[in-house]
Amino acid sequence: MEIGLNHYLVLATILFGIGLYGVMRRKNLLMLFFATEILLNSVNIGFAAISHYYGDLTGQMFAFFVIAIAASEVAVGLGLLIVWYKRHNSIDLDEMSLMRG
């Protein structure tokens, strides 16, 4: 049985769905960050698969830049989270709605 591009794309779709489910479900901000990492990783699988099956290196290049962006996102996000935690002693998403309409 031959594994084709579609297999990898379906896998990336499933992982993307799991990540999106986590983003919608999580209220703890640290756990929400975990879910965003899953989103970025699923997209990377799709890029690598397309890069392999079309014989093109562009997909892998994009995956590298996605990894770089993910790394800087984690650094800045955790810094902001630490500042918020020092002030409010909680990282719950529901308690962050300062601008009540």
């Binding site: 790394a71 800087s72 996102e73 650094a75 800045v76 955790l78 810094g79 630490i82 500042v83």
Partner: peptide, 9 residues
């Protein structure tokens, strides 16, 4: 990002 992380945390 590195400088922001250092300054924030």
């Amino acid at each position: 990002a590195m400088i922001a992380g250092i300054v924030l945390a």
